[in-house]
Structures are given as structure tokens and as C-alpha cells.
Amino acid sequence: MHMADPHDASTHALLQPGQAAPDFTLPATPDQKLSLSDLRGAPVILAFYPADWSPVCGDQMGLYNEMLPEFHRSGAQLVGISTDGVWCHAAFAETRKLHFPLLADFEPKGEVARRYDAYRAQDGVAERALFVIDAEGVIRWSYLSPLGLNPGADGILDALDALVPTPKTPTSNTPTSNTYGAQA
């Protein structure tokens, strides 16, 4: 349920498309770490969210969990990030049967969220913010959702579609035609 929240009208801007996605290394489980650079070579969806157990987050991560086959069709890997600790993430992922990593941006608290301009200092949690990063590590789409609203998956799917080259038709401007070469 969306609550009226004076902080919801976030004015700060997330890192924007075209910018290099800052690399990071965070715990994925009590004894494993994951770096963004480990995922280079395929698109990555970074889903920052405020907290493991709040109802909207559960719905959002639950929805993305169901969307994994669709995300994987684009070759994309999904990673959730919040300021919760690894044991909290482990319990949450087990309860909700999540099949993607949840990273703990726990110490120093919210440091990675800050690097993506996706930290809510007034609440001490990550924003509900989405990033689609291409195989070369460049941000191609970002979206800041109102904190209390599940942003769904449509924006992510659109962004992933935009990464995939559309099949060439006989009339398309293929590089071989050379017509557009000078502008490339």
C-alpha cells in the first residue's frame, strides 16, 4: 500500500544513461562476495530497494523472481541491493524462494547506493531505484521509483529490448550500404 510520504518527491538524480556503472564488491552470502565486474559481458539489472521485509519490496522482488526467465532471455543477470545484512538477506531469500543474489550494502552502510546516487540519507536506506547496465558496463537506463510504489518490470524489459540489436530487414541501414557510414 502506498503511504503518503513527504520524502517521496525525491529531487536528486540517479546516475544516468551513458555513464559508466561504478564497480563494487559486496557480500552476496555470509562467505561469498560478488563484484559488478564479475558480471561483465552480459547485461546486468541492479535493483536497489529499501528493505528486505517491507511489503512493497517483497512484492517487487517476488515479481522479479517470477520474471527471471524473461530477464534471462535477454541474457541479463538480476542483482538486488539493500542496506540489510547478509543474514537478513539469507532469511528473506529463503522465505521468498528468490533465485537471484541479494547484496548487502551494509558496511560501510549504503556506500554503493551512494555511488549510484540512490541513497536516502534521511532514512538510512537505499532508494527504490533500477539500473540496466550493458555488457560493457555502461548504464543504459535508470529509474527512481516512489519509495512506496512497486515499479513493476515493464521499464526493465523495455530497456533490455533496447540493448538487443533488432533483426535487420532487407531495407534497413546496414553498415554494408555505406550510406550512413560518414555519420557513424
Binding site: D59, Q60, L63, E66, M67, E70, L149, N150, P151, G152, A153, D154, L157, D158
Partner: peptide
């Protein structure tokens, strides 16, 4: 149904 809905913005 599921994928069509997700692409149209079904969020729960």
C-alpha cells in the same frame, strides 16, 4: 498472459 501483463506494467 503473464509476460503480456508484466510488459504492460502489472506490478502485483
Amino acid at each position: 498472459d503473464f509476460v503480456g501483463g508484466a510488459r504492460a506494467g502489472v506490478n502485483g
